[in-house]
């Protein structure tokens, strides 16, 4: 039996070239979904294969990679993807947002602002923002070609008519470079403003749906809204229980079955940096010691 051998960062060079071409086209047409011949990866479709292929295609030996899932470097799938590239590319990995040159993410944009030269790679499940309004790809491609986005505005308007405000909490649609309607992947809408005029290159990979799209650095990204119903961010109104941050997106941690809960930063690197810098929250009784079991 032939023992398989793999190329640097797993994908063969031909495939990487094909993906890089798609990426270049995506950068040239911000927000446009470029079809690409997505490969079967050794992790399941829906588990980040699009992001993994984009990362594999752009990674060089000198890159420093950070992988986050739900804002955290320590969630199982983030660990799994980081290990994959550690093994197949041997690149340096980090949990620090500022030290990373390539950050692959699922469902969050880091709190720390990104700098020029960095690349943020998003894992995308459903790249088509119009998909839940129109299931047919043939139709939605036509709608994009004609910039016919009325359907989405009607959907948002219907939310307002029914609930008094727009009832989309994540994967909140944006308009890129005043042309293409784009799905930001299922990030909370709290993160939407970070995409606008961002210094880093933002690449989006959808493996199962075989699409790549991009936001080049310093591109205008506008969350859809109405003059009388402007876009608003949402965050639970509390400081982080660990670092006291009052401007970060929070995870809700259920602590018992009697309604007990606490809120902590979803971006673990951001939270740890703040704690290291001496910031405290209500639950971070320093110095660190184990909670006594009662």
């Amino acid at each position: 039996m032939n023992a398989p051998t793999y190329n640097f960062a797993y994908l063969d060079e031909q495939t990487k070239r094909m993906i890089r071409r798609a990426i270049l086209k995506a950068i040239a047409i911000p927000g446009y979904q470029v079809p690409f011949a997505s490969r079967e990866m050794p992790m399941p479709y829906g588990w980040g294969t699009g992001g993994v292929q984009v990362t594999a295609a752009i990674l060089g030996p000198d890159d420093v990679l950070k992988v986050i899932d739900q804002g955290s470097d320590d969630t199982t799938n983030a660990i799994s993807i980081r290990k994959f590239f550690g093994k197949t590319a041997g690149v340096a990995t980090t949990t620090s947002t500022t030290d990373a040159t390539v950050i692959q993410t699922r469902h969050r944009i880091p709190e720390a602002s990104l700098h020029a030269g960095q690349v943020l790679v998003y894992q995308v499940p459903i790249p088509e923002p119009l998909r839940f309004l129109e299931p047919r790809e043939t139709e939605t491609r036509r709608m994009h070609a004609l910039a016919e986005y009325g359907l989405m505005h009607v959907k948002l308007y219907e939310d307002i008519a029914r609930f008094g405000h727009i009832a989309t909490a994540y994967a909140y649609p944006v308009k890129v470079n005043a042309r293409y309607l784009m799905d930001p992947s299922p990030t909370p809408k709290f993160d939407n403003p970070k995409m606008d005029n961002c210094a880093a290159l933002q690449l989006f990979g959808a493996g199962r749906e075989k699409r790549i799209y991009a936001i080049p650095p310093y591109t205008t990204v506008v969350s859809l809204d109405f003059e009388d119903h402007p876009f608003t961010r949402y965050r639970f109104d509390a400081p982080c229980a660990l670092c006291g941050a009052d401007n970060s997106y929070l995870d809700e941690i259920v602590t018992d079955d009697k309604g007990g809960r606490m809120f902590v930063c979803s971006d673990t690197d951001f939270c740890e940096q703040r704690q290291a810098a001496g910031h405290h929250g209500t639950e971070s009784a320093a110095p660190h010691k184990e909670k006594a079991h009662v």
């Binding site: 399941p44 479709y45 829906g46 588990w47 294969t49 899932d69 739900q70 804002g71 969630t75 199982t76 799938n77 699922r106 469902h107 969050r108 499940p125 009832a167 909490a169 994540y170 994967a171 299922p186 990030t187 909370p188 809408k189 709290f190 199962r208 949402y234 965050r235 639970f236 997106y249 929070l250 995870d251 809700e252 979803s266």
Partner: peptide, 22 residues
């Protein structure tokens, strides 16, 4: 199909939190 159906096992804390808030 199996990838996307089974990806629901992955953490979705962040978007779930958004949905909870809403």
């Amino acid at each position: 199909s199996t990838g996307f159906v089974e990806h629901l096992k992955l953490p979705h804390y962040v978007d779930f939190q958004s949905e909870l808030g809403l």
